[in-house]
Design a protein around this nucleic acid. Sequence first.
DNA 1: GTCTATAATAGGATAGAC
DNA 2: GTCTATCCTATTATAGAC
Lengths: 206, 206
Amino acid sequence: MSASREDTAARRPGRGAEPYTLASLVEVAATAFLERGYDATSMEDLSRAAGITKSSFYHHVSGKEALLRGALDRALDGLFGVLAEPAALEGPPVDRLRHIVRRQVEVLATELPYVTLLLRLRGNTETERWALARRREFDQAVASLVREATEAGATHPQVDPGVAARLLSGTVNSLIEWYRPGRVPVPDLVDAVERQVFDGLLGASG
Amino acid sequence: MSASREDTAARRPGRGAEPYTLASLVEVAATAFLERGYDATSMEDLSRAAGITKSSFYHHVSGKEALLRGALDRALDGLFGVLAEPAALEGPPVDRLRHIVRRQVEVLATELPYVTLLLRLRGNTETERWALARRREFDQAVASLVREATEAGATHPQVDPGVAARLLSGTVNSLIEWYRPGRVPVPDLVDAVERQVFDGLLGASG
DNA sequence: GTCTATAATAGGATAGAC
DNA sequence: GTCTATCCTATTATAGAC
């Protein structure tokens, strides 16, 4: 762990701005976790990124795990919010799937650090296992839709729907590995992922 | 980190078997890293998994980073080996791409712990940055092929080839998130990924 | 080659002054 | 709210006996 740790710009709340809130510190933490990984990021790193000492940092937050939990909550809220949208609940399976994929890309893009944290969990603590369980719920909802779509004859039947669903989720989630805000306009990204997922590289339609 | 750490079965070299080699310990380490993550796995965990004490473990290996390096070497050898195969070097871009995707799935499946480690790197140490640079080389070779295929008119032109290449790699690499040996026969997996990547979920051909 | 014991340090968390 | 100083445990790594 010899990498420079000064590259995250320190930022204190400006004159007259809000004091440190859990949400603002979760944001700082998630950004740092995104760069170096959760385990490799120390509380010292985080406090410096927030522009205060480690002790002061502890005055605002109970510990590292609380930051993790706050970030995971935000990620899961975003994802489950998509499942609750009307267009995800009504209509032919393929249309609902299309809507979910498109909105999921938007959530990944806008909540990038939080979702990244969720997708990199290994289940080492109780908090992590809880979040992983919720994530599995989300994946299973998507998998059910893929199965329905296959039963309705909308997808090619040669591939096991369970495997197809995992590859679909994998394609969408892989965004966290390279997408960074501003690089590609989100609407373009949404279209690209939809196309790749439903039509593949060779895509007949369009 | 309160998770049980006794779940990895201890294994010592059997009577008359080879003594501990770097390769055998790298194998033990990579398997443990796959479960808990690199940072969250201690040398104590690793030595116990190998069936000896931490001190004895250090007698065979210089440190944690050497194990990481050994595992990354193996992953990169597998991937670059694919690029060097005749079918990856000759023929129309789409055919070469198809071959690489299929073989890459096989390498991921057979070298799962090693490739997983490679794909989860954050670049925190010099070793990690070196491996990430080599990985980028591989990805760029694939991206070049996607660009060639697009220029040859083989793929639909609406999606930026750079983005398409990243989504392609993302789909293939996402295997490490769920594939475990024995669950799905490798040939089926290879076919499923090829289909998803080139034809998508709705896939016209076949 | 394996062990017990121990160094050396990093990192999470707290005490208490200001 | 912020700081300096400190505690305490986990972890990497080494010393030296057998």
